[in-house]
């Protein structure tokens, strides 16, 4: 079996919690003993009014933390779909937030998972946790980390100050997992 490897670009508007879910993922990966790099929207390929981050996961030493053709995409707005869809690897995974992305994905050689993330987020209580729904769907599809480690990361990142937000984020995340498993 070849060593485990995955990379994902998470992209959307600033304020959608794009970097936040990237960090949760990176933290959970670290907990599971794998190598991981997390890079925020910084660098020439990252321009264009969107917030994004790249997470690389590997059992081996990680070479480039910057990815030209990612294996997975989590897309939270139209400009991000336009920017990153053409770069997705053949056979890759495209998780798209259909509540906000009105453009239709053009690729036919990739796996597309449509998630009405904002609608679900509103259902569970707050629009703002749409990012957690997306993360849940992505993790259900890739099984890249176990759910518990994301929740542990969430607890840690929220800290004592924002402890009260844990339940809402958790429920949104679990809804995302359900959608991913459908």
């Amino acid at each position: 079996m070849s060593p485990f490897y995955e990379d994902v670009i998470i992209a959307g508007f600033g304020g959608q919690g794009i970097l936040f879910i990237g960090k949760l993922l990176a933290y959970a990966v670290m907990k599971e003993g794998r190598n991981v790099t997390w890079i925020p929207s910084y660098g020439p390929e990252m321009r264009g009014g969107t917030a994004n981050c790249t997470v690389v996961v590997s059992d081996e030493e990680i070479g480039s933390p910057v990815i030209t053709n990612p294996r997975s995409l989590i897309i939270m707005n139209n400009p991000s779909l336009e920017a990153f869809e053409p770069r997705l690897k053949t056979g890759g995974l495209l998780v798209v937030n259909t509540s906000l992305v009105t453009l239709q994905p053009k690729r036919t050689d990739v796996n597309i998972v449509k998630v009405p993330a904002n609608e679900i987020a509103i259902e569970v209580g707050n629009d703002k946790v749409a990012n957690m729904v997306m993360l849940g769907a992505y993790i259900a599809k890739t099984k890249i980390v176990v759910k518990e480690n994301i929740l542990e990361a969430l607890k840690k990142v929220l800290g004592k100050e924002k402890e009260e937000l844990f339940e809402l984020n958790k429920i949104a995340f679990e809804k995302g997992i359900e959608i991913g498993n459908m």
């Binding site: 790099t37 890079i39 933390p65 910057v66």
Partner: peptide, 10 residues
Amino acid sequence: DGYIGQMMEP
């Protein structure tokens, strides 16, 4: 370089 400053790793 700037990437090393911005990047997160364990």
